[in-house]
């Protein structure tokens, strides 16, 4: 086939036109990495995570109370963005822990066990693991729950239908339907705080620094040393969720 100059120019022009239209469409995505709503906060500069040191948690419930106050979580005892569980491993029975969490640990824990009974006891604070590959995000049919570019799993309350797919998908039980709005609610890593340079409410009030927020993209953050120097475990690693709540010295019996 012989192509003359006229045909070549027309064909080339069309290709150029389509390419430039596609490029202008892509431009907004290119600019998106730099565009910022909060002054001084650059989305791409952060990748949030949390460390929980089991050997420091005293089960005081400060985190549970602070979270409810900070995030206006319903006061009824079955709605939690974070809660504390107490594990009790009877002597010689390390496979079947007895777990309790009275009101999520909101009022602390009454002693149920006797010293010297040979049991192992410890507290496990729990919250959304802000997974890098979240099952909850995958199942949302309307794009109401999503991974933010700075590594936080958030909910768009104006989009949420309240269908509860994500509540069932979360392997950690971290989501609930807010009875007032009938939309899903969950830990946001206090997104309104961390984007202003503050730490989360739970970490702010933790008296022993058992839980500490960390920014994995900040090379001088203490989280890097912490992950290096402790025995680290995430919850349900077999589910490959990419959980970003890192537990130090977590017992294998914790589910």
């Amino acid at each position: 086939m012989v192509t003359d100059r006229r045909e070549f120019l027309i064909g080339g022009g069309r290709v150029l036109l389509i390419a430039s239209a596609a490029a202008s469409g892509a431009l907004k995505y290119v600019l998106a990495g730099a565009a910022e709503q909060a002054p001084g906060y650059v989305l791409d500069d952060h990748w949030w995570a949390m460390t929980i040191d089991i050997d420091r948690c005293i089960g005081c419930g400060n985190c549970v109370r602070a979270c409810k106050a900070e995030n206006d979580v319903p006061r009824e005892p079955f709605f939690f963005r974070t809660w504390v569980e107490r594990y009790h491993l009877p002597e010689g029975d390390v496979d079947r822990p007895v777990v309790d969490s009275p009101d999520g640990g909101f009022d602390g824990f009454k002693e149920l066990y006797r010293p010297g009974d040979g049991s192992k006891n410890f507290y496990v604070p729990k919250l959304c693991n802000h997974c890098a590959h979240s099952p909850c995000v995958q199942v949302c049919p309307v794009g109401a729950t999503f991974d933010s570019p700075d590594g936080v799993v958030l909910v768009d309350k104006t989009y949420c239908l309240g269908c509860r797919y994500c509540v069932q998908a979360c392997p950690y039980g971290c989501r609930f339907i807010d009875p007032r709005t009938r939309t899903v609610d969950k830990c946001t890593f206090c997104y309104h705080r961390i984007t202003k340079g503050l730490t989360t409410a739970c970490c702010e009030v933790c008296p022993t620094d058992a839980r500490v927020l960390g920014d994995l993209k900040n090379p001088s953050d203490r989280i890097h040393a912490f992950l290096r120097e402790h025995t680290i475990h995430v919850l349900k690693p077999q589910m490959a969720t990419g959980a970003k709540v890192y537990y130090a010295d977590l017992d294998g019996s914790v589910r």
């Binding site: 995505y29 106050a69 995030n71 009030v205």
Partner: peptide
Amino acid sequence: VYGHFRAGALDDNRQRPLAHAGA
């Protein structure tokens, strides 16, 4: 803009007033 969600939802999540002032 950032993925399969409304970018404005990031701002919505930022709007909450503080309860704890910070040390």
